[in-house]
Design a protein around this nucleic acid. Sequence first.
RNA 1: GGGGGCGUGGCCUAGCGGUUCAAGGCGCCGGCCUGUCACGUCGGAGAUCGCGGGUUCAAAUCCCGUCGCUCCCGCCA
Length: 597
Amino acid sequence: MQDGTEPLGGLRRTHRCGELRTEHVGQEVVLMGWVHRRRDLGGLIFVEVRDREGLAQCVFDSAESKSAFALAERLRSEYVVAVEGKVLQRSPQTVNPNLATGEVEVHVDRLRLLNPSRELPILVAEEQNVDESKRMQYRYLDLRRPRMTRNIVLRHRFTKAVRDYLDSVGFLEIETPMLVRSTPEGARDYLVPSRVHPGSFYALPQSPQLFKQLLMVSGLDRYFQIARCFRDEDLRADRQPEFTQIDMEMSFVGQEDVFGVVEGLVAHVWSTVMEHQVARPIRRMHYKEAAERYGSDKPDLRFGLELHSLDEIVRGSEFTPFEQTLSSGGTVKALMVPGRGAISRKEQDEVGALVSGLKTFYASRQQGELKSSLLAKLGAERVEKVLQALGAGEGDLVIMAAGPAASLNGQLGRLRLELARRYELIPASKFEFLWVVDFPLFAFDEESGRLVPEHHPFTSPHPEDAHLLDSDPRQVRAAAYDLVLNGNEVASGSIRIHQREMQEKVLGCIGLSIEDARQKFGFLLDAFEYGAPPHGGIALGLDRLVAICVGCDSIREVLAFPKNASAADPMTGAPVEVSQDQLDILHLNVRVPQGAR
RNA sequence: GGGGGCGUGGCCUAGCGGUUCAAGGCGCCGGCCUGUCACGUCGGAGAUCGCGGGUUCAAAUCCCGUCGCUCCCGCCA
C-alpha cells in the first residue's frame, strides 16, 4: 500500500475534471477523482474520471504508455485514481457534445490507483431509480451521483446568494441557541435532558422566534440566520424533523418593508442562481380569496381550474343534495377542465376517487348537446348557465360538488391539484410567486374548544381590527403573510406585537392566564417594557425553495443526510437506544410501551 | 391515529383472474476487440419472489396477519 504520509505519490492536482476546455489543450495536467465509466476497446481504454465539477475522458493507449495501460485494465467503477497526462483536442468526429469537457481528452502517461472500491450496492453512473432507503443507507454513494452533487452545489450557491444579499442591505447574521426553553404551544418539541438539572429538559428550537424578537429589542436592527429548526411531527415529502429556515427580523418596519426586502432577496437569488428574473412586485391575494378561488391558502397559480360558486344558479332546483346543502348554509361549487368533456363513466369514477369523501357531478356540451347526469334534476337551462358561468365551451368538462364551504373548498382545492397533475396542466420551469395576506389572527380549535393562533401568538393584529379583540376575536385579521411559490408555502411571517399590554391580551385570547403568560413568556413581556421597537419579520423555508429550484418534489433531494418517513436515518441507524449508564447520568428511566420495538 | 401504493438475484423492472414464470435490462466474473462515450460482442455466476400462517393436487401470484419503505389525511403555534 501507499505510504500514509504521502498517499498521492508526489502528484498534486492541477485541475478539476469538469473544468477542462479547449483552452487547456497542450497542457500537462494532473486530475484526481473517481472512475465513472470505463470503456475497454482492447488495445485502447477510455476512462471517464469524475469529480465534483464533472467528467473528463481519459485515454489509455497500449502503444503510448504500457504501464498506465496495464493498470487501466484493472480499473473498476468508483476506484479513486490520479492521472497525469496531456490535454489534447479531440478530432471533430470524436467530440462529445453532451459533455461540457467533450471537446478535449486527457492522454494519460501516468496512472496511480489511490483506492479501489468494492462492488457497488447502488450504481453511481446510472440514473436509474433506486429504493430511497437504499440511497439513504449508502448516502455517500448517492451524493456522488451527478444529479445529487448538483443539488448540493446549488444549495450552497443559494445560501451564498442569500448571505450576500442580506449583508448588502444591512442584515447581521447572528446565531441563537439550540438548547432552549420548551414551549407547549405549537409543534411537539424535541427534548434534551439536562444532566446538571435532574428532571429538567431543554428543547431544540422550533424556530428562533423569541430570540430574534429580543435581538430587535437589543437594537441590532436587522437580523438573519440560516437557522436549523426542529419539530417532532409526522413527516411528509416536504417536511423533515430538522429543516432550515432563512430567518429574518427587522426593526422599524411595516408589512410593505418586509415584502420589499424579501422580494429583493428572491429576485437577487433567482437571478444569481437560476438566471431567472422574478417579476416584481409579487402578486398579492387575500387569504379569503385564495380559499374561495383556489381552495387553498397556498394556491398554485401556474394553471387555472379555478373554483366558482354555483349557489345562485342552482338555488331552487329539484336536486335534493344541492338544495339541502344550500339550506343548511353550505355551498355548491364547480371547476372546469378544458377539453375533457368526453370523459367516460369509468374516468368519472376515477376522478371522483381522487379526493376521498367528495361526491362529484359532471356536465359538458358535446357536439352542441348538453350532457349531464343532473340534466333532469337541474333542467337544461340551469346546466346551460353552469357551463356559461364556468366559461366552458364545446368539449370542456365541468365538475360540481356541494358541501359546507370550508371543507368543500379544501376538497375541491385538492381535486384541482390532482386534476392538474392527471391531465398534465402544470407548466414546468415556471415560478409563480404570490403573497397571501390578511390571515385571521386566530383559528377555532374544535378539539380543545379554544382559539389558537393561526400563525403564532406574537403576531400583531391588523391595526384596523385590533378593537375587535375583546368583542369578536375570530373576526380579527392578523398582520401576517405567507409567500407562496408554485403552490408551496415557502415563507411565513408577520409584524409582531411590541407592547406588553397587547401581548398579554393576545395570550389571554388563546386561553393563557396572566400568570401562565408571565411564567412562560415573562422575559419577552419584560423586554417589551424597556423600549422595544416596532418590528416584524419572516422565515423562508430553505429546503423547499431549493427543492423547487432543482425541480424535486421532496426536500430529501436537497439535504445531504435526510431522515426517512419514520424520522430515522438508515445510514447511521439513528435513533438508537442508549446504555443504562447514559440514562443514569441524565437521571432518566425509560418505559417502552407494549408492542413497540 | 386513519387511508392508498409498493416489497421478485448487488440495482431497476416484468410476471400477480392458480400448475415449466422465475424473465429482461444494468452491474459483476471471464474471453475477443485501437476511437469509444449508456462502446460492441461471446460466454458465465448470481433469487427458496420481505416474513409468518391459511386456501389448494399446485402459490411470487389468492386470503389473513406482520414487518419495512413510500404518498396523502390528521398533525406541523
